[in-house]
Amino acid sequence: MRDTRRTSKAPLTTLTGKDMRKAALVILIVLVLFDLVVKHHEVFGIDGTFGFVAWFGALACFCLILLALAVGSLLRAPESTYDD
């Protein structure tokens, strides 16, 4: 009985995860495609180009994560550092 529950539950969880990832991917693509129909208020030139904010958001987050990892590799210390 216990084994049956496990096998019936595991595929359902995986499917849900896959479905969610697929749905998220579709949403991301649709959001970028909206750039074809929505006119942006261009100020600096680049901000009006297709998909600018999308790739910039991803790149900015990527750079910040790299910066965090660099800072972490240099400045991480044990919690007992100050013995407070």
Partner: peptide, 26 residues
């Protein structure tokens, strides 16, 4: 929406690098 969703995508792809680790940052 684009900014946040694509930032979230990057976070999702790199989430293992940001797992909480014991310790403090000086």
């Amino acid at each position: 929406l684009q900014l946040l969703s694509f930032a979230a995508l990057t976070f999702y792809l790199m989430r293992d690098l940001l797992k909480p680790q014991p310790g403090i940052t000086l």
